[in-house]
């Protein structure tokens, strides 16, 4: 056991004796962070969330939420967590307020506090003025926000979100992100979310884990992960004598490797940290009177990270399946 809010040790989940959805997953989530689980379709994201939220037992391994075992102390764990499933799971035949009322009762919110908490939660996600509309008539993004409001009705310590922005248009996704960050400011909690969107993992999460075929292949902040690919580089184009430029660059301690660039007179230097390196490189070149025509910084994307660790591109594995999944999600909303 540890002080981490979530700690996962060697989780394995085998469905129907054949599908190894999780293949020895271990990770730790610290207090107050937004932790992202990034992976393509079928990577095992939902499976992990379902195990951590006590819906299904793992085949082997263990996990703790605030020190409580998700296997032996499932009932206690349920009191500590909030959960938004991957599917849009609001009751569409009731109003937003009625949905909230039901969950507030299910979570045992005292009757004297119900109205206030429901109104707070609804206004936090910008739905207070839509509270008495039957949810059928909500947009997909509004339904998602209602679900988030529901999930925080009991002030959970840990909030699990399974692909919270799937099927939403860019503005709907941005709205969810901003509500989430507002949420983090107003309540002390830890968020564990899954996603297969690069930009979401990049912008929303504090730390993330990359999961592929049931295995965690990398963990860290998005910049740590990018850096760890060792793909940060600076490319300089200059009419100056090329060998001279190379020598100058080579004299700098942080330059790892130097290659000739594709273009005429270009040199690419691989470095530890491109932002810091660029300043020193410019001043060194200046000191030696090297005329620089252009200089560009190349930073790896999470795509590069995914390629480096999982051996495939995330986008390729996702697109077709995603289209299908989005359609499915939308159908269910009808």
């Amino acid at each position: 056991m540890s002080n981490n809010v979530i700690s996962v040790r060697n989780l394995v989940k085998v469905y129907d004796k054949v599908t190894r959805a999780l293949d020895g997953v271990s990770l730790d989530v610290e207090e107050g962070e937004i932790f992202g689980l990034l992976g393509p379709n079928g990577a095992g994201k939902t499976t992990l969330v379902r195990i951590l939220t006590t819906q299904i037992p793992p085949t082997s391994g263990e996990a703790f939420i605030l020190g409580k075992s998700i296997i032996e102390e499932a009932e206690r764990v349920r009191e500590l967590i909030g959960y938004v499933p991957q599917e849009i799971s609001v009751m569409t035949d009731l109003t937003g307020y009625e949905n909230m009322l039901f969950y507030s009762k299910l979570y045992g919110v005292p009757s004297s506090e119900r109205k206030r908490r429901i109104e707070n939660a609804l206004s936090l996600v910008g739905l207070l003025d839509k509270a008495n509309i039957v949810v059928k008539n909500y947009s997909g993004g509004m339904m998602r926000r209602l679900e988030i409001a529901q999930a925080i009705i009991n002030y959970p310590k840990v909030l699990f979100l399974d692909e919270p922005t799937i099927g939403l248009d860019p503005s709907g996704r941005k709205a969810i992100w901003s509500y989430l960050s507002q949420l983090m400011e107003e309540h002390e909690m830890t968020i564990f979310m899954t996603t297969h969107y690069m930009d979401e993992a990049d912008m929303v999460t504090d730390r993330l884990a990359i999961i592929n075929l049931g295995k965690i292949v990398a963990v860290g902040t998005s910049s740590e992960l990018k850096r760890s690919t060792k793909l940060e580089s600076i490319t300089i184009i200059s009419k100056f004598h090329k060998e001279e430029v190379k020598n100058l660059l080579n004299s700098l301690p942080f330059v790892k490797q130097i290659y000739d660039g594709k273009e005429e007179g270009s040199v690419t230097a691989y470095v530890e940290n491109a932002e810091e390196a660029v300043i020193e490189i410019i001043s060194t070149l200046k000191e030696n009177n090297v005329d620089v025509e252009s200089l560009s910084m190349n930073k790896p994307t999470l795509d590069d990270v995914f390629l480096a660790y999982a051996g495939t591109k995330l986008e390729e594995t996702t697109s077709a399946l995603e289209a299908r999944k989005v359609r499915r999600t939308m159908q269910r909303m009808r």
């Binding site: 379902r50 819906q55 009932e75 599917e87 299910l106 979570y107 529901q150």
Partner: peptide, 8 residues
């Protein structure tokens, strides 16, 4: 799923 995650 949501019902099963609630403390009920």
């Amino acid at each position: 799923n949501k019902l099963l995650v609630a403390p009920v």
